[in-house]
Amino acid sequence: MAKFAKPESIVNTTEYCGGCGHGIIQRLIAESIEELNLQDKTIGVVDIACSYWSLDALDYDMIAGPHGRLAAVATGIKRVRPEANVYVHSGDGCAYVIGLSETSYAAIRDVPITMIVANNGIFGMTGGQLNLATTLVGDKTVSSKAGRNPDTMGHPVDMLKSFQNYDVEFLARGALYDVKHIEQTKKFIKKGLENQRDGKGFSLIEVLSPCPTNWKLDPVKAMEKIKNENEKIFPVGVYTDRGGVQ
Rank of each mutant, 00 (worst) to 15 (best):
Arg27Ala: 15
Ser51Thr: 14
Gly18Ala: 14
Ala57Leu: 07
Ile24Thr: 14
Ile33Gly: 10
Cys20Ile: 02
Asp56Met: 06
Asn85Pro: 03
Asn85Trp: 12
Ile29Trp: 04
Ile63Asp: 02
Glu34Leu: 13
Gln26Gly: 15
Asn85Glu: 09
Val88Glu: 15
Val86Pro: 01
Ile29Asn: 15
Gly68Arg: 05
Thr42Leu: 11
Lys41Asn: 09
Ile98Leu: 13
Trp53Arg: 13
Asp56Val: 08
Tyr60His: 08
Ser51Arg: 05
Tyr105Gly: 03
Asp61Asn: 12
Val45Ser: 15
Ser32Thr: 10
Leu100Val: 07
Ala71Met: 02
Ala71Val: 00
Thr14Cys: 00
Asn37Thr: 03
Gly99Glu: 06
Ala49Met: 08
Tyr96Thr: 03
Gly19Met: 05
Asp40Ile: 05
Val73Thr: 15
Ala95Lys: 04
Met62Leu: 12
Asp92Gly: 08
Gly68Ala: 09
Ala84Val: 06
Ser104Ala: 07
Ile63His: 13
Arg79Lys: 14
Ala64Cys: 14
Gln39Leu: 07
Glu102Ala: 12
Ala49Phe: 05
Cys20Asn: 01
Ala95Tyr: 02
Val97Ala: 13
Ile63Asn: 05
Asp61Gln: 14
Gly18Arg: 06
Ile43Pro: 00
His67Ser: 04
His67Thr: 12
Ile24Lys: 01
Val88Thr: 08
Cys20Trp: 00
Ala95Pro: 14
Val45Arg: 15
Gly76Leu: 11
Ala57Cys: 08
Arg79Trp: 10
Tyr16Val: 04
Tyr16His: 06
Ala106Val: 03
Ser54Leu: 13
Glu31Arg: 07
Cys17Phe: 03
Gly91Asp: 06
Asp59Met: 06
Cys94Ala: 12
Ile48Ala: 05
Leu100Asn: 08
Ile43Val: 10
Cys17Ile: 00
Thr75Trp: 05
Ala106Trp: 04
Leu58Ala: 13
Ser54Lys: 09
Ser54Cys: 12
Glu35Trp: 01
His22Pro: 00
Arg27Met: 14
Ile98Ala: 09
Trp53Cys: 02
Ile77Arg: 07
Tyr60Gln: 06
Asp40Lys: 15
Cys17Pro: 04
Gly76Ile: 08
Ile29Thr: 05
Ile63Ala: 15
Leu55Ser: 06
